[in-house]
Amino acid sequence: MERVAVSDSLRGPVRADLDEIFRRDYARVVGVAARVLDSPHQAEDVAQEVFLSFGRSSVPAGEATGWLCVAAAHIALNVLRSGRRRVSREETVAAGDAAAVADVAETVVTLDERSRARAALAQLPRNHAVALVLRHSGLSYAEVAAALDLSSGSVGTTVRRAESALRKELNRDASSD
């Protein structure tokens, strides 16, 4: 019943398959954005922006998943680079809960590493960063290739270069601490 009401509220120039594609791909799109931002709330903000754009687009349904994931990666990287990351009250609370139940030292190290990884990700060439995020979000080589208009063979090369560069950035940051 509720679902009917929600669909009704989307009347207007919104593509007819949005509901189906949203329910199928929303978690995946959030996952892509979260890889970049490491923030569930910001990742959902990004996913909302992505689906709003998608809802008014004419992207073929068969290309929807790839388009959504690429858009999520780009928007999340934009957020990361523009320094618009905001730590919400909920995240602060959640972080406190996590620290309370986990080993404190390990949690701090993990959080620091994650933070440095995002900073390093923001420094990568955009196409390398997007390919890396898509691959680590579970897209297959064929899916990454189709989404980024690459050959399958070059996906491995791009991901490898991105991982190598990211590892160097992480090592550099660690050694300068």
């Binding site: 978690a27 569930p40 909302q48 440095r116 990884a117």
Partner: peptide
């Protein structure tokens, strides 16, 4: 280093 727990508790109905 790129791991995240963000997608675990997605509420698709609320998001919709």
């Amino acid at each position: 280093s790129l791991s995240t727990e963000a997608a675990v508790d997605v509420d698709v109905d609320a998001a919709w």
